[in-house]
Amino acid sequence: MRSTPLFIALALATAPLAATAADWDNWPTKATFSDGTELAATANIAYDLNDFSGNSGIEDADAVRRKEFGATLKKKGVYDAMVYYDFQSDTWLDVFVRFESKAFFGSDIGRFRFGYMKTPVGLDAGTSSRAGSFLETALPVQAFYEGRRTGAEWVLERPQYLLQAGAYGGKDLQGDNPGTTQAVRAVWTPVKAAGDVIHLGLAYSQENPRGYRDGRDVSHPASARLRARPEAGLTDIRLVDSGALTTADKIVRTGLEGIWIRGPFSLQGEALQTTVSRDGKPDYTGNGQYAMASWILTGESRPYNAGAVANVKPAHSYGAVELVTRYSRIDLDDADVFGGRQHDWTLGANWYLTSHFKFQANYVKVDASRRGVRSQPEIFELRAQMHF
Rank of each mutant, 00 (worst) to 15 (best):
R210K: 03
A13I: 08
S219D: 04
Q376R: 14
T29Q: 07
K102M: 07
I109N: 09
E270K: 08
G288V: 01
L12P: 02
Y363C: 08
M292S: 09
L297T: 14
V184K: 09
S266T: 12
L234K: 04
S277G: 08
G372A: 06
E136A: 15
H220T: 15
Y79Q: 13
H387S: 15
R2W: 11
D108C: 13
Y168E: 00
A203G: 07
T29N: 14
F7N: 07
L347V: 11
G110C: 07
Y116G: 07
Y284G: 12
A308N: 11
S242V: 06
I58R: 01
D60F: 05
R185M: 02
W92E: 01
S277E: 03
Q273H: 11
S294Q: 15
L382I: 03
A167G: 06
Q360I: 11
K250N: 04
T325G: 15
G263L: 14
A224C: 10
A167Q: 04
K30C: 10
D279Y: 12
D344Q: 02
D51M: 05
S107Y: 03
D336V: 06
V141C: 06
G170Q: 04
P230S: 08
L202E: 00
T4P: 08
L239W: 02
A193I: 07
G307V: 09
L139C: 09
W27K: 08
